[in-house]
């Protein structure tokens, strides 16, 4: 976890925003939680009649999705490796 971050620093210094892609090839999975949270937030913003509990409901939905994605990844890993 630490080493990819350390190797990422020098390339980040030469990064031109919007022109160059981020060097996240080793850390791509860190980009999933913000994406899932954004999808959950838009869904809950449209679905809830009032927005009092939107942050709690969004966090809960995002957590469910991430747990299910992780379980699916473990199951697929098992199928690929052992079957």
């Amino acid at each position: 976890m630490i080493m990819p971050l350390l190797t990422y620093l020098p390339t980040a210094l030469a990064w031109r925003p919007f022109l160059d892609p981020l060097d996240f090839h080793e850390l791509w999975y860190l980009l999933l939680p913000p994406l899932v949270f954004g999808i959950s937030l838009v869904y809950k913003a449209l679905k809830l009649p009032t927005l009092e509990r939107i942050w709690l409901d969004t966090t809960r939905l995002a957590a469910y999705i991430l747990v299910l994605i992780s379980l699916a990844a473990v199951a697929l890993f098992g199928i690929v490796e052992y079957f």
Binding site: R16, L19, D20, P21, L22, D23, F24, H25, W28
Partner: peptide, 9 residues
């Protein structure tokens, strides 16, 4: 002008 992105990124 820009760098082509590939792979997971």
């Amino acid at each position: 002008a820009y760098e082509v992105s590939v792979g997971r990124v």
